[in-house]
Amino acid sequence: MGIRNYLIEGVSGTGKTSVCDELLRRGYHAIHGDRVLAYQGDPETGRPTSGFTHENHIWRVDEVRASAAAQDEEVTFFCGGSRNFAQFIDLFDGVFVLQVDLDTLRRRLDARPEDEWGGRPEERELIVRLHRTQEDVPKNGVIIDATAPIERVVDEIVRQCSLRRARL
C-alpha cells in the first residue's frame, strides 16, 4: 500500500466516507476501512461476534498491518472508524480526526436513511454521546474541521501530510 500511511478517523457523521471518496477522485490511494477491513468482533481478541453493535465494529488487524507494510504507493489513506484502532495505530505516519459541531452532525444524521448506521434514533443518541465524549477516537490525532466543504477538508489533510513529510 503506502510508503506513508495515514488514518482518517472521527465519530459517525463527520465525513470519513466522503473524504475517502474525494481522495480516490483525486487519484490518491485510499481504503474505505468500514467497507473493506471491518467486521463484527471482540475489540480485544478479534474473535467474530454475531449481530451488529457499535462496540464490536473492528478492523482486521492482520490486513491493516499487511496493507500498511506494502510499499506499492507513495501514500495510503485508511478511512473509517474502528473500536480496535489501538492495535494498529502505531503503523501510521499520522492520524487525522474529523470533527464537526453538534448542529452539523445532527443535520447529517437526519439525512441518513434508517437502514444506514446512524439512521435510527437510538443510534443517533449514541453518536451524539460519542461526539460529546470523543471516547472512541484517537486522542493524539490532528483535528480537521470537517464542517467545511469536502474539497477544503481534503485540501487540509493533504496539506498536513505535506507538512509532516517535510519534517521527516
Rank of each mutant, 00 (worst) to 15 (best):
126 L>G: 01
145 D>V: 00
107 R>D: 11
139 K>P: 01
99 Q>L: 11
160 Q>M: 13
87 Q>W: 07
153 V>G: 13
133 T>G: 07
90 D>K: 11
94 G>I: 09
98 L>W: 06
86 A>S: 13
129 R>C: 11
100 V>Q: 00
157 I>D: 11
118 G>C: 09
155 D>V: 08
155 D>M: 03
125 E>I: 08
146 A>C: 09
142 V>P: 00
149 P>E: 11
124 R>T: 05
140 N>E: 13
158 V>K: 00
92 F>T: 08
115 D>V: 15
131 H>K: 06
84 N>S: 04
112 R>C: 00
88 F>K: 04
105 L>S: 07
147 T>S: 15
109 L>C: 10
94 G>V: 05
100 V>Y: 01
161 C>G: 07
84 N>G: 07
101 D>R: 06
117 W>R: 12
129 R>F: 10
139 K>W: 09
142 V>T: 14
144 I>G: 04
96 F>S: 01
153 V>E: 14
157 I>Y: 08
135 E>A: 15
138 P>A: 03
143 I>P: 05
108 R>S: 06
159 R>I: 05
147 T>A: 11
132 R>E: 15
104 T>F: 00
138 P>C: 06
116 E>N: 12
145 D>C: 13
131 H>R: 02
146 A>W: 03
154 V>C: 07
120 R>L: 14
90 D>V: 03
101 D>K: 08
86 A>H: 11
95 V>G: 03
107 R>W: 08
89 I>N: 00
127 I>P: 01
133 T>Y: 06
160 Q>H: 08
94 G>M: 11
126 L>K: 06
128 V>W: 05
145 D>Y: 07
110 D>L: 10
94 G>S: 04
142 V>L: 02
127 I>H: 02
155 D>K: 08
126 L>C: 05
144 I>Y: 08
110 D>A: 13
